[in-house]
Design a protein around this nucleic acid. Structure first.
Lengths: 206, 206, 206, 206
DNA sequence: CAATAATCGAGACGGTACGTCACGTCTTCTT
DNA sequence: AAGAAGACGTGACGTACCGTCTCGATTATTG
């Protein structure tokens, strides 16, 4: 489990408890739940800590005690809803592995949780911590698996040994995010297959 | 020139002048200038109309009189700074044409104006008007030229007749925006060449 | 009229108007009215600017725009209810003049407005501005009249030319405030007569 | 010693000890010490239990366990610093006895402890318990001695049998408090002599 | 040349949310 | 059982901007 963005407290397993009343797990969960709930109703800028605290029946100070800003809170809330759905399969074919995973991503982006991803990336454009959280906590774990998937393809001879993996992945996923964030159209599962073909084989005539 | 998002006044050429004091061109310019200036200092959410008015030495009501909201103002300000640098050349080679234009884009994104693009796309994630303005006023005009460039390539036989142009362009530019918006690293001119090669020829072994 | 504690705006008579929307007289009055109203319900520490603004149907910022702190606001509110009742009469007898005025004071202190005086003097013990406001705006104007009253007594031969007026007045009114602020008992109109006698003639046997 | 305002515990001498950890005398002293220290830095309203607990290196709950509110704590702290200096002498002259004692009072009011007295009387204007504590624990014990002093004067023939002692004392001490609390000037030892003369002999011509 | 009309700057207005502070209560482990 | 530590819900603080409004002043067209 990745470390929380929240101020650390000793929820640790082995070491001694700190003195003082322990952090309320109920409050923590209620806050994250309300954050996700409200975030889906409006966008990131409309989201107010005041409203989160009220919805979660929690003091505003309790929110500020554990999260330094709205961005960190949203990032935490989002990754607490992080997903098995985005694991890479191992079908024996790179193209299939990528295609399947990318279609899951597309489904998420088009669904309720898409608003959250948009809020994180959008908000991150003026909040370095936020985009960093998105990158480190959401994107990188998946990319590690993606590297592994590509490596298997290389071993099987489907991909060249000289493959620039970041180049390949940025091109594959960049096209998805282009349609998600900017063009806001054409983000279909067929598109995924077209992208995989295009990046694998190139668009210029054979 | 695209129509302004600002409330229309009789700036028209042919029709009669309305009575009353005409709109101040100085104020309009100062507002747009201050908007761009402040936008590249902080992000879209941090940008306040209060600050714009103060910086432009203009009454707050003058801003509200002409622009219905912050998004419209920012979109106007942005498209008033339109770039000649992003025109496509015509070298006789699609790869060269694309590569040259994309390198110009990379240079802009890495420079001062990059903050403005980030602010627009970021802010646009919670403001439909804003992303629409970015798309319609900034991206689409370029894409029209890109279509033309690709079409020349098809005519020259560099690209197949069946080319899915949007697919190609989303893949090419998506990888740029991926590194610009999310990964925030590796956005170099060499990367442009790698992307063009990858998308043209594919990443899997020949 | 003594200058308001509120930030000055040019409500002046002769000089030009400042630019900008003029201060709302309605808001000013409503704030002072609500301040007095709430101050009589609870004490000074319980009085919150939040509640005043709500009661006066006014934005909190409007209060803060014109009064630097709660103390100044209360002092203003109180002296706006400042009173004809505390004028000194001119009966031809110092003793009568003093006695009549002091009885009016006693009646005020025992009434609703007594809470305000207590709040001002009490709050003033930890707020130099507040006690200064009470002194300068409430007490001193009366004391000027008191000096005049004593002076008439001297002219009439009722009091010695060498009279130390501040000594006399601090002794007369000090006993009133002692019973009002500290002893909180025995503040009757009969007491006023006793004090006047005591200070005039002394308590030791003739 | 007057009974503490603190919740009673088995500090009794004869009776059995309650089970459990006994109350920490160190904590009690540290709390009272910190209370006095902070009280003379700022006024009563500014004094926070939070700050007292922090300054005394004590848990907040320990304060609340033993004192029901800030006023009780302050009153306790104050009367724990009770003064020998304010005993009345017995010189054989009422005027001298009063003058000496009042000069001691003036010296205290002008010194560090004056801030505490001001805080008590000031805070007491919105806190009945506080002014009551000041009256009962500080003022009344002295007043008992004052009565005795006056009684001796009556016996000696310095004062009339019919003397209204409270009237005399309120007039004498009221003038002191008037200058201390409100006028905040002229509280000198010479003033004491003038007040004693004025109240004894009257201010009107012989 | 006056009257009319829409603009301009300035800045006050009623609001909303901010992030902080202290309240008095509570829950934990330690002494 | 009392201690310290410190988290909890609550509520007011004073600030920053929101978008609207009301001023006097300015600059044009219209009669």
């Amino acid at each position: 489990m990745p470390p929380s963005l929240a101020t650390e407290q000793n929820t640790g397993t082995g070491d001694r408890r700190l003195p003082g009343r322990p952090r309320s797990e109920d409050a923590r969960k209620a806050i994250l739940r309300s954050t996700l709930k409200l975030l889906q109703q409006n966008g990131f800028p409309e989201l107010s800590i005041e409203a989160i605290a009220a919805d979660a029946d929690v003091g505003k100070a309790t929110v500020y005690r554990w999260w330094p800003n709205k961005a960190a809170l949203v990032a935490d809330a989002f990754s607490s809803s992080a997903d098995e759905e985005l694991r890479f399969p191992n079908t024996g074919s790179v193209r299939a592995d990528l295609s399947i995973q990318m279609k899951h991503l597309v489904r998420i982006l088009r669904g309720r949780r898409g608003r959250i991803v948009a809020a994180l990336v959008g908000g991150g454009q003026s909040d370095p911590e936020l985009i960093e959280a998105f990158r480190d906590r959401f994107m990188m774990p998946r990319r590690q698996e993606a590297y592994e998937t590509l490596r298997r393809g290389i071993e099987r001879g489907e991909l060249p040994k000289s493959l620039n993996m970041d180049l390949a992945l940025d091109t594959l996923y960049g096209s998805i995010y282009m349609r998600f964030l900017i063009r806001q159209t054409g983000l279909t599962e067929e598109f995924v297959d077209e992208v995989v073909s295009a990046v694998m084989d190139g668009v210029s005539e054979r």
